[in-house]
Amino acid sequence: MKKNKLSMRGKEIAAGYMFLLPWLIGFFVFSLYPIIYSVMLSLNEVHITSTEGVTFTWKGVQYYYEALRVDTSFLTILGESVTFICFATPIILVFSLVIAILLNHEFLGRTFFRVLFFFPVIIMSGSVISELLGSYTLDFSQMSGVVYNFLNSLPGILQKPIFFALNNLVLILWFCGVQILLFLAALQKVGREVYEAAEVDGAGSWEKFWKITLPHIKSMILVNAVYTVMEIANYSNNEVLEKISSHMFEVTRPYSFSAAMSWIYFLVIAMILLVIFLLFGRKGKNDV
């Protein structure tokens, strides 16, 4: 009997790994190997000869040094990219949440608005962004003097993000599509009776939002924040990625310099994600 049970367990494991096998092969061939190879590229000088193929000469952290200290534009571009992520992510989260809350009621035209707000996700490719959003967005510098002067009079800490948001408004809004739907799905899971119970106890809309809605969707905020950061970090018009691509086939240092810059970029993104996890992550329940 015991033996039978054991072999059942063995069979289950075998069957499980049989289903997992394609992914495992893919992971080792198309992900893990390229990742390790990329580390090697960033630490070695690459020679490509017709007789020996690709050969390496150890260079240590030289290319990292060149990226951070010698190259004139990498740090600036990296800084701009990080600033964009740090400003845009909270704005995108707040915007998506506001729109999701507005859409989380039955009203005429709800479907229409849902379809409308999701629409950018469909057409957002790098070339469309540069064709459309580069030059043809609303221009807020022609805003009426009163509003402009008011914004200008704000202290710098407030002023910077506001101007940033206005200047990139459409791009930021266009990044919201998936997040709105995710928030909407999370909001619909909050039972009506919880709100009704709170209303009986005399809670206003404001209290209901902070005490009921927000705690319920906290895990979704984490998911959306991570998704947003990855979305911005990887979209093809991102200047850091363009910079990395432009050095890829450089004659004097093929692949290596690009690889070093990608790893620096990855470390920065990983740090941003770490901060997000510290802010919104639940302790102990990190299942996925």
């Binding site: 069957a15 992914w23 990855m230 692949y255 990608s262 970029y265």
Partner: peptide, 27 residues
């Protein structure tokens, strides 16, 4: 299936999502 190493594979799967595709592009 309850298979040994499941947590490890899932963690690696999430890790792959977080690593920018740019890193794997050249290799």
């Amino acid at each position: 299936f309850s298979i040994p190493g499941k947590k490890l594979w899932m963690a690696l799967m999430v890790a792959v999502f977080i690593i920018p595709s740019q890193i794997m592009l050249i290799p």
